[in-house]
Structure formats: C-alpha cells, structure tokens
Amino acid sequence: MKTILLVEDDDNERYLYERELREEGYRVMTARDGREAIAKVEEESPDLVVLDINMPQMDGLDAMGKILDRDRKVPVIINTAYSSYKDSFMSWAADAYVIKSGNLEELKHQIRAALQKSETHTH
C-alpha cells in the first residue's frame, strides 16, 4: 500500500482529499502546513506528497524545497487553487501541477502516474 502525504491548510478540503484518496486505496498522512509536513516526512517517508501552495505557516513551495532536500526521489504533486504558480521556477521541481477542482479525477490520475513512474525508476 502506497503512502501519500497530504498537505492542505483548509480543514474541509483536507478531509475531502483524505477520504477520497483512502477510498482509492492509499494510506494517507495529513499535514496542515509546511512545517507540519516536514515533521511528518521526518517521521515516515511517504511514497508521494500532495501539496497545496500558499499556506500560512510555510509556503508550499518552501515546504517542497525542504522535502526534496531530504528525499530527492519522492514525487511531489502541487494541488492548488492558484494557476499563477505554474510558471514559477520552483514548481518545475514538482512532478505535476494540479489546479484544484471539484472533480478529483485529475489529481488521482496524476498521483497514479507519478507513483508508477517512481516505481519504474526504483526498479
């Protein structure tokens, strides 16, 4: 079972994504902000990180930088309401950039693709 770290500041969204991803068959860890996310990553290495950006405590991009510093191989998917960060230099490091939507299929698809890709890399 793959473990996904879900970093999301909005309580309702976090709840929704967590539930949806569990129903997809993933193990889901959650964090409310960048700082918490880094703490979680230190506890246990996730197979993939879903990250909102523009969170209050530490910006998602900052958090991503820190996470990638620890584990270069973990795939990161940016899941955000902002479209404007897509062109940001830092976003390039992410494996996918998903703009938040009521339809979670895109997010789920990107998660599958990223996990598949990282599996072929490790083997």
């Binding site: 909005d10 929704l16 009521g102 339809n103």
Partner: peptide, 16 residues
C-alpha cells in the same frame, strides 16, 4: 480566484 476556487473546489468535491 484562489479565494473563490478553494471553497468552490471543496463544494464540488463534497457534492461529487
């Protein structure tokens, strides 16, 4: 767009 998209995405997600 961020402020609105966040609740919209949430609403959409829960509605689905």
């Amino acid at each position: 767009s961020h402020e609105i998209r966040n609740p919209l995405a949430t609403i959409g997600g829960f509605a689905r």
